[in-house]
Simulated scan of single mutants.
Amino acid sequence: MHFDFKEEYILENDVVRLQPLQATDYEKLIGFSINEPELWSFNANGPDCPENLKKYIDKALSQKERQLEYPFVVFDKVRNKIAGSTRFYNINLEAKHLEIGFTWYGKEFQGTALNKNCKFLLLEFAFEKMQMERVGFRANNLNIRSINAMKSIGCIQEGILRNFSTDSKGERIDAIVLSIIKNEWFDNVKQNLKNRI
């Protein structure tokens, strides 16, 4: 499959629909910025207020235009509500690797089946349609909830990037790096994840 950044890829199953982020999604996501700014406490530049949400969406769409990222809005089909956002980023079609990140969900969607279903759809698309060889993940090394979620879907820890970035308060943070590679997906990660969703 030839991946086209201008194409509208929609990934879905019975639980979730991932649809390409649009500028008009600002209105659908604004409630999270106003009511749940703590969602982005572990990382800088989160959409923790209406102004930052506008910048966040504009930057994501600009990165898509530059063919570096492909952002999605996450729609929870069980609750019939927008739940958050996620994206492919650091996309390198030539070297066949990308990362999944910028993932966040409102509090009512955390700890549900939503995340595993999202990750299954994203990984399936990355490995089976885009023909990626490696899918990477990163998180603030203090974000234990996020790290445990990544490990639970089959990610292998690769290492720590020391003093890599900042959190929402401007404090320097270490970032953990994890990944899944193509043969792991087909050997066991896909089936294990399928069994859990």
Rank of each mutant, 00 (worst) to 15 (best):
D76P: 03
L142M: 13
L142G: 03
I176A: 00
D58N: 13
E38Y: 07
T103A: 00
F72G: 01
I147M: 02
L178Y: 01
K107D: 15
R162W: 05
Q191E: 07
G46V: 04
K77P: 05
L114V: 14
S33G: 04
L93H: 01
K54M: 07
F42T: 03
N183Y: 10
K59Y: 13
T112M: 13
G154T: 01
I57F: 14
N115W: 12
H2S: 12
F164R: 15
I30Q: 11
E7A: 07
G106C: 09
K190L: 06
N35V: 08
G154N: 00
F127Q: 10
K55P: 00
E65D: 06
Q191G: 04
N35F: 06
Y26Q: 03
Y70S: 03
N188M: 07
E51C: 05
P37H: 12
S152D: 05
R134K: 15
A149H: 08
K119G: 05
A44G: 06
L121I: 13
S85G: 05
A44K: 09
K55I: 09
L93Q: 08
I144P: 00
R87E: 11
T112G: 10
L68S: 04
L121C: 08
G159L: 08
Q22N: 08
L193S: 03
R196I: 02
K151A: 01
